[in-house]
């Protein structure tokens, strides 16, 4: 390991096109260990693509992504790097044929080769952490959306990641189930997890994040602390977008 001051995640000049659709046009930002950053922006702006690039589910056309001292775009051990990055997204991606417990165990037993007994203990501990001890033996189809997403979080945490990515984790949920997922995320942040979150939950962003990144058309328009972003955004586009969000979702945390 080298420099103690280097960020945990450092994204430099990230570029990506799908065909002739330029989706990411030079995105740069970084996260220090324990930091929590929120990305906001209109639909189709490339927010999900940024996260997909971070664990190379989408291969960028240009730029660098450093996780500590591993460069993700060019590394040749991507499956090991992915174990260090938890990914939770809108559609949950739970394995339908496995119980909540087995969903959390699968990565441990099959990827990390943890012995079954140990994996089970660990999985139970993670499920307890997200408040799901009572549904260990339930199948995904028997869980509410909020429970599904918490299983997905526990599954990601079981791999002991250094970084957690969240892509609109509450967008598919009924309004009354959003809170339980945000609470888990908030607790995670308080415990020091490094998190990069795409969300339109401005209450969460305001309470938890260290910085809000506003993206539009594949570029970062503005990044600043939540206080500054909400009280006096610099860019008129940011102001306009936040105003629209207020109309759609209500004023964040107020």
């Amino acid at each position: 390991m080298g420099d103690e001051d280097r960020p945990l995640l450092n994204i430099k000049e990230l570029k990506k096109s799908f065909g002739d659709n330029l989706v990411l046009d030079g995105i740069s930002f970084s996260l220090d260990t324990g930091q929590n950053k929120v990305i906001i922006g209109p639909s189709g702006t490339g927010k999900s693509t940024v996260l997909n690039c971070v664990n190379r589910l989408v291969v960028p056309d240009g730029g660098e992504i450093w996780l500590e001292d591993t460069e993700i775009v060019s590394c040749d051990n991507i499956n090991e790097v992915r174990q260090e990055i938890g990914y939770v997204f809108q559609g949950f991606g739970l394995f339908h044929h496995l119980t909540a417990l087995k969903n959390v165990m699968l990565g441990l037993t099959r990827v990390k080769k943890v012995p079954k007994k140990e994996a089970k203990e660990k999985a139970i501990a993670k499920l307890e952490r997200v408040g799901l001890l009572d549904v260990l033996e339930s199948y995904p189809a028997q869980l509410s959306g909020g429970q599904k997403q918490r299983v997905a979080i526990a599954r990601a945490l079981a791999m002991e990641p250094k970084l957690m990515l969240f892509d609109e984790p509450t967008s598919a949920l009924d309004p009354e189930l959003i809170g339980e997922v945000l609470n888990v995320m908030r607790k995670l942040a308080e415990e020091g997890m490094t998190m990069l979150v795409v969300t339109h939950e401005m209450g969460f962003a305001r309470a938890v994040s260290d910085e809000i990144i506003f993206m539009e058309k594949g570029r970062i328009v503005e990044k600043s602390s939540p206080e500054k972003m909400f009280e006096q955004p610099e860019n008129p586009r940011t102001r306009e977008f936040l105003f629209k969000l207020d109309e759609l979702y209500g004023k964040g945390g107020e």
Binding site: N79, F89, G91, G93, F95, G107, V111, R155, A156, M159
Partner: peptide
């Protein structure tokens, strides 16, 4: 079997055959 499950499996570090 939906794309979301591939996405989460790959995110856990599972190889394609796994």
């Amino acid at each position: 079997v939906g794309a979301d499950q591939y996405k989460s499996a790959y995110s856990l570090g599972m190889k394609r055959w796994q």
